[in-house]
Amino acid sequence: MSQILLVQSSSNLGSSVSRDLSEGFVRDYQAAHPGATVTRRDLVSNPVPHLGVDLLGAMFGKPEALDEAQVAALAISNTLIDEIAAASLIVMGVPMYNFSIPSALKAWIDHVVRAGRTFEYTANGPKGLVTGKKLVLFLASGGVYSDGPFKPYDFQQTYLRTIFGFIGITDVTIIRAEGLAFGGDKAAGAIAEARVQTTAITA
Rank of each mutant, 00 (worst) to 15 (best):
M1E: 07
L5E: 05
L5F: 03
L6I: 03
S9C: 07
S9F: 09
S10C: 11
S10G: 07
L13V: 06
L13A: 13
G14Y: 11
S15G: 01
S15L: 02
S18T: 14
R19W: 06
G24M: 09
F25G: 04
D28M: 13
Y29R: 05
Y29I: 04
A32K: 15
A32Y: 02
H33T: 11
A36C: 09
T37V: 11
T37M: 12
T39G: 00
R40S: 04
R40F: 01
D42M: 10
D42H: 10
L43E: 06
V44T: 08
S45D: 14
S45A: 15
N46T: 13
V48Y: 04
V48C: 04
P49E: 07
H50E: 02
V53Y: 03
L55N: 06
L56H: 05
G57Y: 12
G57E: 13
G57K: 13
A58R: 15
M59C: 07
M59Y: 12
F60C: 00
F60G: 02
F60L: 12
G61N: 09
P63T: 08
P63M: 11
E64R: 07
A65Q: 15
A69T: 09
V71N: 01
V71T: 10
A73K: 11
S77F: 10
N78S: 10
L80R: 05
L80G: 00
A86P: 10
A86N: 12
S88L: 02
L89N: 01
I90L: 14
V91N: 06
G93S: 12
G93Q: 12
V94A: 07
V94T: 11
P95H: 02
M96P: 04
N98W: 11
S100W: 00
S100Y: 00
I101V: 15
I101N: 02
P102K: 10
P102H: 04
A104D: 02
A107C: 08
I109W: 08
I109M: 14
V112H: 07
V113I: 15
G116V: 10
R117N: 07
R117K: 15
T118G: 02
A123N: 12
N124P: 02
P126H: 05
P126N: 03
G128N: 13
G128S: 13
V130N: 01
G132E: 07
G132Q: 09
K134Y: 00
K134G: 00
K134V: 04
V136K: 08
V136F: 05
V136N: 07
L139K: 03
L139S: 02
L139Q: 05
A140Q: 12
A140F: 09
S141L: 05
S141F: 03
S146C: 03
S146F: 03
S146V: 04
D147P: 00
K151Y: 03
P152F: 11
Q156K: 09
T158F: 01
T158G: 00
Y159V: 04
F164A: 01
I167S: 04
I169V: 13
T170R: 14
D171I: 10
D171E: 15
T173V: 14
I174P: 02
I174T: 14
I174Y: 02
I175N: 01
I175Q: 01
R176M: 12
A177T: 08
G179M: 11
A181H: 07
F182M: 13
D185H: 00
D185L: 01
K186D: 06
K186C: 00
K186E: 12
A187D: 03
A188N: 14
I191N: 03
E193A: 15
E193C: 00
V196T: 14
Q197M: 14
T199C: 00
T202R: 12
T202M: 03
